[in-house]
Design a protein around this nucleic acid. Structure first.
Lengths: 316, 316
DNA sequence: CAAGGACTTCAGCAAATGGTTAACTTGCTC
DNA sequence: GAGCAAGTTAACCATTTGCTGAAGTCCTTG
């Protein structure tokens, strides 16, 4: 699966014809066909076949077509980024947990970025279980998420913010007025973090015995909480975001044992050796009052800075 | 930038040493060094340099380290996916606009998926301006988003749902009670779609003359609306989602000329030739009452199905 | 300052890549 | 079924890749 093969295949997919692809690439049809043969052999799939007018792609062929352009694009972008980095542009690569990414990271990064000009921050949301691997592979500079209890080899963590997550319901929900021990029989409206079985949310649901068919997953926590405030179920909400909502009398905290998560956010960086200087700056900045303030209030980003980039979701 | 070069570089980054990388890869140091030399030459960056204990990576080197593992992972996954597809797993690749992806797609896909067993849906959120390119490259099977006015070569569109988007504020916001013509001086709380200058939201803001420093971008529309309902500014909200919110008296529609967007959602598919049969199924399904219902109410996904995957955001 | 470890460079070699031309197959279309 | 357009395969060749061993070059350390 060399870049040339992928480029060839992507071109065929785009034109729906080997001949046209050969013309565009400036080679003979035989060369194109050869590359396809190599792909077919490696992947064990016919990829496409002549079908009346144009080509008929197999499911695998369609799959490869998507991924081929993606791979080539990523490769191109890599070239570009490395060159940009050489021109002195500083970069900070961040991985954050889902909840932190949604509520606290935007405020943090926004205020961190205003301190520097030629700084680009790339934030990926991922499961905290991946943090170590990403750090070890030097794929990210800093990871931010809940503290885990076992200390890890070669990774330094630093606490900077305590948080509490509580269960909430809309004012008209039955749980708003009655106390119950049995939270398992209600519908839970959850953010993406609940998909990760090692997350504290998932562990809490397991502990409460909430069955899967009572768990509804939303693309983000804000949507889940909006749904809860319409009275459709129980949601999880960080305490500090709740203040505003409770004040407006739309959400009520559920008073029930085992319905609260208590934790502390930490930064993770590789312990040994030469770090990205920007990473150090962030780790220092993150415990300043200004940063804490930014994380707790979380006002959106400036339009000229913020660039959402990739966002893929799978159902299966 | 061949896969071998990338693998070599990623291994060096992981171990922080050429020698260790050579050992892991089972080749001589010279071979490793050769690959690095090629990368250095191609990218015009030193990438790393010996620095006391271990290696010191340049910004470009760090960048390359991230991307290298990403590229290799993607390549690996591609292999895997093509093989899976060969075993008869059907797949639907979807691109959706930001607002549709947030409010309507989850309900649609959830109900579409319950009809079929071995079906995997991959949904990417992207700017409608990219739809044509993605369709043409066979990177996606169907795109769903607002109708654009100029018909495009080779692409068939089909309307299925009208929508209206209105400006809303929290009950305590000044605009909740007074009428004004000047919406430009208020703070707007926006979803990611506002970043795309060709989106109807961005065009409306331009038309209203809202300056950039009055636009705050949030990671998703739900967060922007939550912020608005706390009284911090004006947000945009799809009419059909508003009903529930207005009913609870938390949001008020702003009555002002030019503050409403009116449109229709359409499906886009390649016109000519052999389509993915699942794509046709979706296009038929999407105008059934059941699908419409699912899009309008939008209850989250089942926990065992939903798998958020990538989510990268850039600040610069 | 000498020793030694770690990265780099160089020359040389086998294998793979990427391409060519030419012949062959396949499935329409008239 | 002849003709034809489009894809495949085969034989062949120049170039590049990927390695290796050996010989530098630096930098740290004793």
């Amino acid at each position: 699966m060399t870049p040339t093969q992928l480029r060839t295949f992507a071109t065929i997919a785009r034109h729906g014809s080997s001949k046209a692809a050969a013309a565009e690439l400036g080679v003979t049809e035989a060369a194109v066909s050869g590359h396809v043969a190599a792909l077919r052999k490696e992947l064990g799939d016919e990829l496409f076949r002549r079908a009346g007018a144009g080509l008929g792609f197999t499911p695998g062929g369609l799959r490869l077509a998507s991924r081929a352009v993606e791979l080539l694009g990523l490769q191109d972008q890599t070239r570009h980024e490395v060159r940009a980095a050489a021109d002195g542009q500083r970069i900070l690569r961040l991985a954050v947990s889902s909840l932190f990414g949604e509520y606290s990271a935007p405020g943090l990064i926004e205020s961190f970025c205003t301190r520097a000009d030629d700084l680009e921050v790339e934030m990926s949301v991922c499961a905290p279980a991946d943090f170590d691997r990403l750090l070890a592979a030097r794929a990210i500079d800093v990871a931010i998420g809940p503290a885990t209890h076992q200390p890890r080899e070669g990774i330094a963590t630093k606490e900077f913010l305590r948080y509490q997550i509580v269960a909430v319901v809309g004012v008209k929900h039955p749980l708003a007025t009655t106390h119950t021990k049995n939270l398992a029989e209600h519908t839970w409206l959850l953010g993406p973090s609940a998909v990760d079985p090692s997350s504290s949310a998932a562990r809490m649901l397991l502990h409460l015995g909430v069955p899967e068919h009572h768990q509804r997953i939303f693309q983000n926590h804000a949507a889940a909480i909006a749904e809860a405030s319409a009275g459709h179920g129980v949601a999880l909400c960080p305490m500090h975001m709740l203040a505003a909502e409770l004040g407006h009398g739309r959400l009520v905290r559920v008073q029930s044992p085992g319905s609260m998560i208590d934790g502390v956010y930490v930064t993770h960086v590789l312990r040994r050796e030469v770090p990205n200087p920007v990473a150090n700056e962030l780790v220092r900045f993150i415990s300043t009052p200004r940063a804490i303030q930014a994380m707790l209030t979380g006002t959106g980003a400036n339009v000229s800075r913020f660039r959402p980039r990739v966002h893929v979701t799978l159902w299966s």
